[in-house]
Each structure stands twice: as structure tokens, then as C-alpha cells.
Computed example of a mutant assay.
Amino acid sequence: MTHTALAPAPFEVDYGHVEPIAVYFDDHDPMGIVHNARYPVLLERAITPYWTARGHYFDHNGPSTPDLFHAVREFSITYHRPIRGAGEVLVHFWLDTFGETSARYGFRFLSSDGRTCYAEGHRAIVRLDQVTLRPTPWTEAAREVALPLLKPERSLEPEEVA
């Protein structure tokens, strides 16, 4: 699959990052609205380019950094309005926390003009050791990429996840 460059986000945010993403026909349910189970995929479509552009990506050799070996611990979303039809939406995402071994993203799905919030929520992830599958610390490289995503009142807080 090739990726088509989407227009840059039409507005600035005070924190985090805004990524335009494409919503396709197959993201919809029989009623013509984005299926609730597709939102985690759409969120991945937004977060992945941010990290890829900063050296954290998967290719035929596997992950470029050990920080990509992580698992979703929690995903919560509140739906406000349905996304109808194919086209572009914006995903505003940020980090509420970036701890020793875990991170908690906040996110919003917005209309292409940024005026309508379709859904919002959070997603927590845990970095895992590839051998033991136990939580393990993020690298300094990941911390450098994460820092600009932190919401201003938040910090790189130590946070342990068992």
C-alpha cells in the first residue's frame, strides 16, 4: 500500500501533535458511519507517522528501536458524533504521562477544519522486554521523541506498571 500525502493540519495546537489521516470506505459499518472498532486503527494511522519521521519504525528488518516492542494496556474512548463518509479527519494526540516503562496518550478525532470533535479518549501502553515480556524502561531516544508530545502540566513522571 502506498501512502498519499495529506494536507497539513489547518490549525495549531498548544500541545501534542495533529495528524491528518484518511478514512476509507472499509472503515464504515452498514449505516455509513465509522465502525467503533476502527478507531484504534485510525489512531495508529495517526501516531505511526509521528514516530516514523523521528526514526522509530518497522521495516523488513523488524523494529528500528526496541521501544517499538510495546503493548496496549488500556484503551478508552467516548464517541460524541459519528464520522460519516470517507475523507480526511484530524487526530490530535499528546502524552499525558511518559513514565519509566509506560505511557498514556490522550487523543481527539476532529473534523478536517478542527471545529467538530467526533470522539476523544486515552490509550495506555507498556514497553516490554522482547525476551521476558515484562515491562522494561524506555530508551533515551524514545524520551527525546516523546518530550514534545507531553501536555504542558504533565512531565516525564516515573510510573511503574506490573
Rank of each mutant, 00 (worst) to 15 (best):
F11M: 14
L128K: 03
H122C: 12
L90V: 05
A119N: 11
R154V: 00
T97R: 01
T65W: 03
H28R: 10
Y24G: 07
F69D: 01
D59Y: 01
R115L: 13
H17V: 02
M1R: 11
A103L: 06
K151H: 05
W51M: 04
T52K: 13
D26W: 06
P30A: 13
A46C: 12
P40V: 11
A46T: 12
Y24R: 14
G114M: 09
F98E: 02
R134S: 12
F58C: 04
R127F: 00
E153K: 04
Y15M: 00
L42A: 12
H92T: 00
A141C: 11
F25N: 09
I21T: 09
Y15A: 00
G106W: 00
T101P: 02
G99K: 00
E44V: 06
H28N: 10
P135M: 05
P158Q: 05
H80W: 06
K151Q: 12
V145Q: 04
P66K: 12
A124S: 09
R115M: 12
A71D: 02
L149R: 00
D14T: 01
G85D: 07
P63C: 08
L90H: 02
L42G: 05
Y15P: 00
A22F: 09
V34A: 04
E74W: 00
E153H: 01
V72A: 15
N61K: 15
E44C: 07
A71S: 15
T139H: 04
V72K: 10
V131M: 06
T52R: 15
F107S: 00
I21R: 03
P10T: 13
F69I: 15
L95G: 06
H92C: 00
R143F: 02
F11W: 14
F98C: 11
P148W: 05
P63L: 07
G121M: 01
H28M: 15
E159C: 08
